[in-house]
Design a binder for these strands. Structure first.
Lengths: 241, 241
DNA sequence: ACAAAAGTGTTTCTAATACACCCATGG
DNA sequence: CCATGGGTGTATTAGAAACACTTTTGT
């Protein structure tokens, strides 16, 4: 008795979130190159097959590094996608053949979340083209990448719910309370009044007011704040209980 | 350029939680049969390789059904384990050869959580021996099953935090407030006074008092309650905000 | 002066906690 | 009668929410 067990390649795909100046969540997509493939199918999530001596977490770390050149990025595995139909598209099969020089029939992938300051310089050693796409302007993507992205949003919200400190991975090192507020609103269902938000934030000893304030704004300039991770660790607090 | 990409089997493993009469979390383990293997290594998590035309979620559902005979069990994917060393033990390699009739060098697994009423009759179509083990009496297990179980506890706590209603999957259909309280304590870090717990519970319209009360107890008999899933769905509430 | 957002102070109200008290049952 | 836990009611308090008011800057 030798039933038809899966024997397959395994990849990782990374959904990297950023937060732009129009208060929108963005995602990093890369270019793939295949002839005869409609141009709208030429974007994809950054990813890679994993090596035979590699753990998935390490593979995801590698993909992120090849993608951005950044050494340490926060990273969280969130789901294995293994629909037998997920790589059945002709174009995708062709692309895999060219990319990996192997005939690949089925492939399962482990999806990861990551966060990145959108102003950080992207220095990819692997991809020619790496671009931010606002969440609601993401084109139709190969494989089940659109599905993965859709589910990643739910996951990133959960993540911030659980560990508020990772929200600062998306903000510049110095940020205004308003920026933090807008980001919080984009990521949380909870609605909170900006004034009360302000009050609560300033009661936290791990969000530290700086001397610097905004310039060239047509209203009272806001103060910049910075996040003190050490302070946060000491008395780990949720934003909203 | 054809680097050494993984080409592997993929399995699912299920960590099924139960809650016993001594207020302890338990886990279902099955027996595996290999000669020459020390008896303490003869238990394992229920699991299976996935078939070539099967999604992982379906495989997990299949495993659970073969394990318990129960049709619908709650089920949640929680992590892919892919350490290249995880199946390097000689005994494990031998067992895989006998079980699956294939030479298996490396194997990655996707772990699932499930919950089961501990009094429910277990009717396994696949395993001769299926037993509950209290969480802190789990023996040394093959592969990385001990690691998986350890992480599953964190995960099940998160799950209940997110969706309180699944806690009732672990309780009998009729239960006392004390039972619910003990279970809640076992699964949550939050401490709450039993009296206030009682009060809060009785304020929820989806936890319905029954006419029946305990018998043969050496103190005032407690009332039985039941959980009304429909009511809960209407006004989904967290136990503690 | 006005608009627009920063930032602070005050009040209200809900909900969590602490705790007192009565009830029921077995020994 | 006592011990044990079931179950209810009340007072206190913390903190979330609503909102008024002052400050700062550009136009």
């Amino acid at each position: 008795m030798s039933p038809n067990f899966i024997h397959t390649y395994v990849s990782v795909d990374c959904v990297v979130f950023g937060f732009d100046h129009e208060n929108r969540l963005n995602i990093l997509l890369v270019q793939r190159h295949v002839d005869d493939v409609p141009v709208e199918m030429q974007r994809k999530l950054p990813g890679s097959l994993i090596f035979s001596d590699e753990d998935v977490d390490d593979a995801a770390e590698r993909v992120l590094h090849e993608l951005t050149g950044i050494k340490k990025m926060v990273l969280k595995q969130f789901k294995c996608f293994a629909d037998p139909e997920r790589a059945n598209n002709m174009h995708d099969i062709k692309w895999m053949g060219e990319e990996y020089k192997q005939d690949i029939d089925r492939i399962i992938t482990v999806a990861y979340l990551s966060l990145c300051k959108i102003d950080h310089k992207i220095n990819s050693s692997k991809y020619d083209t790496v671009d931010w796409f606002p969440f609601d302007e993401i084109p139709s993507l190969p494989f089940d990448h659109n599905k993965i992205i859709k589910e990643s949003l739910i996951e990133v919200r959960r993540w911030i719910e659980m560990d508020f400190s990772i929200i600062f991975e998306l903000l510049p090192k110095k940020f205004t309370i308003r920026q933090l507020y807008q980001l919080y609103c984009a990521l949380s269902e909870k609605k909170i009044d900006i004034k009360n938000f302000h009050k609560r934030i300033s009661s936290f000893n791990y969000i530290i007011p700086m001397d610097e304030i905004e310039t060239n704004v047509s209203h009272r300039a806001a103060r910049y704040y910075k996040f003190d991770a050490k302070m946060f660790k000491k008395n780990n607090t949720k934003l909203i209980k």
